[in-house]
Computed example of a mutant assay.
Amino acid sequence: MLSSLVSPPLPMIGVPYIIYWKSAFSSYAASHFRQGLLSVVQSSCSHTWDAFQLAHASYRLYCTWNNQFVPDSNQKLSSKLGSHLLGDSPKINIPIPEKDLDLRFLVCGLSCTLDACLLGSLEDGLNALLNIEIRGSKLHNRVSAAPSPLQEGTFSRGFVTMRCDITCSCAHISLLVSGSAQTCFDDQLLECHIKSALIEKSQLVHAVPNSEGRMSSLLNPLNSVSMACGASVFEVHMRVPTWAAQVLKYLAPEVSYRSLVTLGIASIQGISVASFEMEDADRLLFFCRRQGMDFVSEDDAASCRPR
């Protein structure tokens, strides 16, 4: 009666599954089914749906196939005999893999066209900066952890998952790492594998095309006293891995960290680069203003230096 009133998908009634017998059954058959169900539950971390299917298969195999415990021997044998399960089959919800993040960079400079040369230079510079940070990073801590849902069942016996903390310059990031027990329980080997996985597979930083799919766009300079010491800046968007975004955001407010200034980066996702000084802005804008002019000789270089 209950199954006729409630059909999948079931409402949230607090009980996800109900096992019931639709027809008459013997105590022997019920005992056999119960034994099969408990055997599955005790043997492995199983889902109710799968445990029932296995126990019901055993019931059909021994209690209906040879017609021993069917109340009416003339009843047509089918999978409908015996116990029934009221509930929805489980679904494996695979999470969307973590995507790279789009970061907004403000770069010291005048109104310019974001051509392939400019964007390629920023890509390569940021990629080198991240490589430096990871190569010099140290494994700070590691603890055992459960694998992510996307990885469950994909590793063979002997593979383990660790949550690892690594430090680089002023940054601190946590990563979920899976590998052989030999690798994950050897700190030096684990550290090397993490570095290899992060920076040696592909380029980390990619310029984001504008809405029309072109990599060039004329931008007007912006001004803010909180960035680049009030010098003009222009906006560039870059796509970076999540861990790389964490590193860059850690480094931006560090007064002693000067590598970002080398690339003219004055702000990352609204975080001002603290080590940016007035003389940096003067030097960078000097070269921006001299675009298209002839190079001077070494003897004349002194007279062209920014004051």
Rank of each mutant, 00 (worst) to 15 (best):
W243D: 05
L222P: 01
R214V: 11
L219S: 11
W243G: 03
V233C: 15
L248T: 07
H206N: 11
L248I: 11
A244D: 09
S259L: 11
A245L: 03
S226C: 07
E235D: 03
L218E: 12
P241L: 11
V247Y: 01
S232C: 12
A231V: 06
S224I: 07
M238V: 12
K249S: 07
L251N: 00
M238C: 08
A231P: 08
S259H: 04
C229S: 10
Y257M: 03
L248K: 05
R258K: 10
V240A: 09
L248Y: 08
V236K: 00
S259C: 01
T242E: 13
S226N: 14
Y250R: 00
N220Y: 11
L219C: 08
P241M: 14
R214T: 14
A207F: 10
P221E: 13
F234A: 01
A231G: 10
A252D: 02
M227L: 09
L248R: 04
P221R: 10
W243S: 05
A244W: 06
N223A: 09
V233A: 04
A228V: 07
M215D: 09
A245D: 05
V233K: 01
V255H: 11
P221V: 13
L248V: 08
L222K: 12
N220P: 07
N223R: 15
P253N: 08
R239V: 12
V247G: 02
A245T: 06
H237P: 00
F234L: 06
M215E: 04
E254H: 07
R214Q: 15
H237K: 13
V208R: 13
L218A: 13
R239P: 06
L251K: 02
G213E: 04
P209D: 06
T242D: 14
